[in-house]
Nucleic acid binder design. Structure first.
Length: 202
DNA sequence: ATTCGGATTCTCT
DNA sequence: GAGAATCCGAATA
């Protein structure tokens, strides 16, 4: 499709990319089927200065090297030994910015059913399927095999244009208490009044 | 309604 | 060998 977001979108400051990704469409292709999700919540991680980022200090490691690559690819990692988290790499080569996708919203019935199949839950609330980084990865079958995928091209995982959100809320990031002065940075963005946002402002 | 701890494995020191 | 960008169920009040 021509509606894929082009490379230049990602080659900018991580904060701008995080904010502008809201409302965009995350597409997951599995077994020839296409599932679509709206991105409703993101966080920016701006290495090398950000103490909350994996890239703090600015030296690539075996795990973090995708972040040092050119923007527009995925960075997927395992957290707490149990859950994967999906990030989109931003900015130019050797500028380690990335954007954590914290929550998405299924855009049609088929996508919703797909989530339920991958992630059975007791809750009746549909938003419990994808309102958190670990949850959405499970619901979309995202694991380390989708690491370093180019999201500007059609494939198993990519991003297309979507609707521009009416109102965006800026907030502090979640669960990075160790990041000292950086933990209070308002580098988290979400779409106001969207029920799929993981944690609301206190 | 809110707090608490266990699960589980990869990565870096 | 510690600890992590999380989630969920159980216990408490």
């Amino acid at each position: 499709m021509e509606s894929n977001i082009k490379r230049s979108f990602y080659l900018r400051d991580g904060l701008k990319v995080a904010k502008d990704l809201l409302g965009k469409t995350l597409v997951r292709v599995k077994d020839g089927k296409r599932y679509a999700f709206k991105i409703v919540e993101t966080e920016a991680y701006l290495g090398p200065n950000d103490k909350g980022a994996h890239t703090y200090g600015g030296k690539p490691t075996a795990r973090t090297k995708p972040i040092f690559d050119e923007g527009g690819i995925t960075y997927i990692y395992l957290i707490y030994g149990m859950y994967y988290c999906l990030n989109i790499v931003a900015n130019e080569v050797n500028i380690p910015h990335c954007v954590l996708i914290r929550a998405v919203e299924p855009l049609d019935e088929e996508s919703l059913v797909y989530c339920k199949a991958n992630r059975p839950i007791k809750s009746k609330k549909v938003q419990d399927l994808t309102n958190g980084p670990g949850k959405l990865c499970k619901a979309l079958e995202i694991d380390k095999f989708l690491n370093e995928i180019d999201v500007t091209k059609e494939g198993a995982l990519y991003i297309e244009e979507g609707e521009t959100p009416k109102e965006i809320v800026t907030d502090k990031r979640i669960n990075i208490d160790y990041a000292e002065e950086y933990k209070d940075k308002e580098w988290r963005f979400y779409i106001k009044d969207n029920p799929f946002v993981s944690v609301l402002k206190k």
